[in-house]
Design a protein around this nucleic acid. Structure first.
Length: 425
DNA sequence: TCTGGGGTCCTAGGACCC
DNA sequence: TCTGGGGTCCTAGGACCC
């Protein structure tokens, strides 16, 4: 048996934890740059505010109902998430952290427990220790646990807990679940299935396996098997190493000069390098992209991107930044109003800079990886660890001209001494 | 006249997740 | 005026190897 524990309206709940006066109030959280609605409290959902709506399109509604609007605060959500995950790790022998707000627990060994009781215990523990409300779904496969969790969330009578064990319970749940609400079935596949008159999860379990294999491939076949109660997706206890690392942002305003873009791209490259070193890894390829506003039909539109191989795998901020700058000057076009840029590291390998294979015929001026550079990065990271992110950074990293909008950013009471606040409960 | 069999790697495109 | 960010997996087809 698998349990899926999923935090309710996670980002909105995080914000509310430190603002108890917002309990029972409509709360929304915006994406980076204060662009779209990406989390809503139940009260905000009830007002008809849809997920993914651009903020400016529902500004009147937000104002009319006095909705509390927050800029996204990932430092806060990340820390709250790790608190939830640490608690969950104590509540089950094995845990798979699936996303920032969800985890699977292995319930196989709980044969002598009442699963319903135990799920309630999980729920209460998380609530008491973090203030975050969660729902728990338990079933024989991960896909069914997802369905159970969804039912627990939708149905107030369930009080946040749904266990699917008997054939009847499972069949009932499948009949009540539309194909588009199944984990792994997205918009395209829903359309395809509906055209075939496969409308519910129950329909999908009895659909022709040959047809499924042909149109939904192995991924769809696995979903079908999981719905039938045959577990195909095991617990993944260790997070696999990253294959790519991306940092990108929309700009608070559009920028048009090369030097402004250089500052943005250098900043993103620097963030990528930090993430890379956190992974204990090296990157061998680097992509830079720059883009104009895709929604502005009247302006000149441009999407420039290029990937270059690094001379050898590295995690050195200095080398990554200068490679990014070189790519940027190759794709930059004058006279455009740029709205977004990003850097992607790929070809990621594990290991230390000096452990990798060097080029057989190195260029004359090509520096070899050396231990001093690696040491320098270590020092930089430890200083930043101690004195705060980007206490020490490269001079070309600069947020002056392109800084994203963050009008309603909450403090970081769990990660910053200066932000500790008194909460009256 | 006859023209095999068993592979890998890479990329682009399409789908999905949170 | 204002529209997010960060990922993964799978398939097909082409190029290549012995």
């Amino acid at each position: 048996m698998f349990a899926l524990v999923d935090c309710n309206n996670f980002y909105a709940s995080c914000e509310r934890t430190f603002r108890p006066e917002l309990r029972l109030r409509p709360v929304v959280v915006l994406s980076n740059n204060d662009g779209c609605i990406i989390a809503r409290s139940e009260e905000a959902k009830a007002l008809g505010i849809k997920m993914g709506t651009p903020e400016f399109k529902c500004r009147d509604l937000l104002k009319k109902h006095d909705v509390s609007v927050f800029s996204s605060n990932y430092a806060l959500y990340g820390d709250m998430s790790s608190r939830v995950m640490r608690l969950l790790a104590k509540l089950a022998p094995e845990i798979e952290v699936y996303s920032i707000d969800e985890a699977f627990l292995d319930m196989t060994s709980f044969t002598r427990f009442d699963l319903q009781d135990y799920a309630r215990h999980i729920r209460q523990t998380i609530r008491q220790h973090t203030g975050i409300p969660v729902c728990v779904g338990i079933a024989p496969t991960k896909t069914l646990a997802k369905i159970a969790n969804r039912l627990a969330k939708k149905n107030p009578d369930y009080h946040g807990v749904c266990v699917l064990k008997s054939h009847e319970e499972i069949y009932n749940a499948l009949e009540r679940t539309k194909v588009e609400d199944i984990w792994g079935i997205g918009r395209q596949w829903s359309k395809l299935l509906q055209a075939k008159r496969i409308e519910t999860a129950a329909d999908l379990t009895v659909a022709s396996p040959v047809w499924i294999q042909k149109h939904l491939h192995i991924v769809g076949a696995r979903i079908q098997a999981e719905l039938q109660g045959k577990s195909c997706l095991p617990m993944e206890l260790v997070r696999p190493a990253k294959q790519s690392i991306c940092t990108s942002r929309s700009f608070g305003r559009s920028v048009s000069t090369l030097s402004e873009l250089q500052q943005a791209v250098a900043t993103f490259a620097g963030k990528c390098a930090v993430k890379l070193r956190k992974e204990n890894a090296l990157a061998s390829m680097l992509t830079v992209f720059i883009a104009t506003n895709p929604f502005d039909e009247s302006a000149n539109r441009y999407w420039g991107t290029r990937t270059a191989a690094l001379p050898y795998p590295t995690h050195d901020s200095i080398k990554i930044l200068s490679a990014a700058e070189a790519i940027l000057s190759g794709i930059f076009q004058d006279g455009m109003a740029y709205k977004k840029a990003g850097v992607i590291l790929s070809g990621i390998v594990s290991g230390e800079p000096c452990s990798t294979t060097l080029s057989l015929f190195p260029e004359e001026e090509e520096p070899e990886p050396n231990r001093r550079d690696a040491k320098l990065m270590q020092v930089m990271d430890s200083i930043n660890q101690r004195y705060g992110r980007s206490a020490l950074h490269l001079a070309s990293e600069n947020t002056n001209s392109w800084k994203p909008n963050q009008a309603n950013l909450s403090p970081n009471p769990t990660t910053s001494w200066n932000d500790i606040i008194e909460v009256k409960v």
